[in-house]
């Protein structure tokens, strides 16, 4: 699954069009747009709103370690940045201005963007603010911290498009879309490429095999700890021998009447599964 969070609809609309996303009309808490395995949520501005929205969507869709999350949005540039408006950045450090905590996405993959640090503020940043980061926004640190609870740091990305140099005068919704538009295709392509990388370790046991082993554990009246041990032994056996069902076939019709009998059977299965 690819989760995308964007603060405002005017920032999101070019991505919604490019990715052909459709609105999930059943959702009243947040605006969610989706297609197949892409979910895009409009979080609202600010670290708390964006972190809440992100937690909502990652929980709703039961995010797993193999999913990726991308925060996209506009940002301001500090005086350390001398690149043109519209430049796209992948953030390598994200600072929460409120508590000065820093977060670091894992920069494992190549990408076509510039890199910079981002500092997230709880207020609109002006030239008067003391800015540590290269870029500023109002969401990055909030979503990153929330996403880190669910996903590994190499699957969390924060992509920012340079909108202004700490002077937000004259920025309209139309202007936002106009500045984002030229970069939409390259950002979407990148996300699609990253999503194709499957670093997930395939489970050793198939679902059917796991179900069968759990059933076997039930039939033997195993305790939870013993059932976990049985699964572990079965996994290791399959890694060594390449199969597990045949090894367990003599035991599949077991139906123990007591825990004691179960323990005896478990001993026999253990011996079988520890064969080299």
């Amino acid at each position: 699954m690819i989760f995308i969070s964007i603060a405002m609809y005017c920032e999101a609309s070019p991505f919604i069009s490019e990715l052909h996303l459709k609105k999930d009309t059943y959702n009243s808490k947040f605006q969610i747009f989706e297609k197949d395995d892409i979910k895009l949520i409009i979080t609202g501005t600010g670290m708390i709103s964006s972190a809440s929205a992100l937690t909502y969507i990652l929980t709703k869709y039961n995010a797993s370690f193999s999913d990726i999350f991308v925060n996209i949005g506009i940002c301001g540039g500090s005086d350390k940045i001398s690149l043109p408006i519209g430049t796209v950045f992948l953030c390598n450090k994200i600072i929460n201005n409120d508590n000065k905590k820093s977060f670091y996405p894992d920069m494992l993959f190549k990408h076509p963007f510039k890199e910079a640090s981002l500092e997230s503020f709880s207020h609109v940043v002006t030239e008067k603010d003391n800015v540590q980061g290269d870029l500023v926004d109002m969401e990055g640190a909030g979503v990153f911290q929330a996403a880190s609870i669910f996903l590994p740091p190499h699957q969390i990305m924060c992509i920012k498009i340079l909108m202004d140099f700490l002077n937000t005068k004259g920025i309209t919704k139309e202007k936002v879309s106009e500045i984002i538009n030229p970069s939409v295709a390259v950002i979407c392509n990148y996300i699609n490429e990253i999503a194709k990388i499957n670093l997930r370790q395939e489970p050793i046991l198939s679902e059917d095999e796991e179900d069968l082993i759990l059933k076997l554990g039930n039939n033997m009246k195993l305790t939870n700890a013993m059932a976990v041990e049985l699964l572990k032994l079965a996994e290791a056996y399959k890694v060594r021998k390449g199969e597990i069902i045949e090894a367990l076939s003599p035991f599949l019709n077991i139906n123990c009447k007591s825990k004691y009998e179960g323990k005896m059977c478990f001993g026999r299965i253990k011996n079988k599964l520890m064969e080299l």
């Binding site: 450090k93 820093s102 670091y104 920069m107 494992l108 993959f109 996903l151 590994p152 740091p153 670093l199």
Partner: peptide
């Protein structure tokens, strides 16, 4: 290389949910 200033090595080294095996492909 890109240099990134940090306060303590633990901010990077001890992050939660890291993948030891994925990082082996591009160690920092």
């Amino acid at each position: 290389s890109t240099f990134i200033e940090i306060n303590s090595y633990k901010e990077v080294f001890s992050r939660r949910c890291q993948s030891f095996s994925a990082q082996k492909n591009s160690p920092k």
